[in-house]
Design a protein around this nucleic acid. Structure first.
Length: 271
DNA sequence: TTCAGCCTGTCG
DNA sequence: CGACAGGCTGAA
């Protein structure tokens, strides 16, 4: 589900919580916490702490409380939905936990349970965690971008999906960026010319910024922090459009596997 | 660098 | 019923 634009959208929707004390945590799925090495007791320590700020790196979203940092990775189907009032109604499936603030509560649910939770009790372990995530795709600058890709021999799409190289891009945005930049997903990252790297960098920023403006892509499950669908899916040019004519040249869009993920691209327009 | 595995739901 | 889905990991 959520790639960088979706997580960024959720982050901005939740910013109204900043400054509020966390009143209570309700745990619905204890096994989910256990898989993430967190005990209910540890999580309960957040109660009474004030939310100081939110931050994001790549696809990770962090809640900075007075003494702890709570991190979320939404996997494919995780959602964080803010609502007025107390406990969420039963219609929500696969509830994991609810963070109850004064007059708002935030429900984390995750249908496929691929998401992950992190709890840090010291700045140092948090910084170590951040260090292992590659530079954020919105933050990275051109020289750093070129440097990161230059030495990589695997396909450019694989490099995009590798969160240690650049973080935040997933299957949707990798396909959309590569199409718009006119670069074949199978090209070795290290083989791209200076000109191509420049073009790719620009396109990456443009696509991500536009996707954020349109509040992310909703294919099936994704909703923003207020439970609303995104709009960027209406701008998708190739993602999951294999078999259809290329919007640029009319030749059929092809489907291949790259890094184990279904990839749609136009062999004519992407060289 | 593949590939199964983690889960649940939907579509053909 | 099998195939597949916005992700990531660890093992072969």
């Amino acid at each position: 589900m959520p790639e960088l634009p979706e997580v960024e959208t959720i982050k901005s929707d939740l910013s109204i919580l900043i400054g509020s004390p966390l009143k209570a945590i309700i745990i619905y799925d204890k096994a989910y916490l256990e898989r993430n090495g967190i005990t209910p007791k540890e999580l309960k320590k957040l109660e009474g702490q004030k939310l100081l700020q939110l931050s994001r790196k790549g696809k990770y979203l962090f809640f900075h409380f007075s003494r702890h940092i709570l991190g979320f990775h939404l996997g494919l189907t995780g959602s964080l939905i803010l609502r007025a009032g107390g406990n969420p109604p039963d219609k929500f499936k696969h509830k994991v936990l609810s963070l109850n603030f004064l007059d708002m509560s935030l429900l984390f649910s995750d249908m496929r349970k691929f998401g992950r939770l992190f709890l840090f009790d010291e700045e140092k372990s948090f910084q170590n965690f951040l260090f292992d995530i590659g530079p954020d795709a919105l933050e990275i600058e051109l020289p750093q971008f070129k440097e990161a890709l230059r030495s990589i021999r695997k396909p450019i799409k694989s490099a995009f999906l590798d969160q240690k190289v650049i973080s935040g891009i997933g299957n949707i945005y990798a396909d959309e960026i590569l199409f718009r930049a006119g670069i074949n997903p199978l090209r070795s990252a290290g083989s791209l010319s200076e000109e191509e790297l420049q073009k790719l960098y620009q396109t990456m920023k443009e696509v991500l910024r536009l996707a954020i403006q349109l509040r992310g892509s909703t294919i099936k499950d994704y909703v923003d922090g207020l439970g609303r669908a995104g709009m960027f899916q209406t701008e998708h040019l190739v993602y999951q459009k294999y078999g259809k004519p290329c919007p640029r040249c009319g030749e059929p869009i092809e489907k291949i596997k790259v890094a184990g993920r279904t990839t749609s691209y136009c062999p004519q327009c992407q060289r």
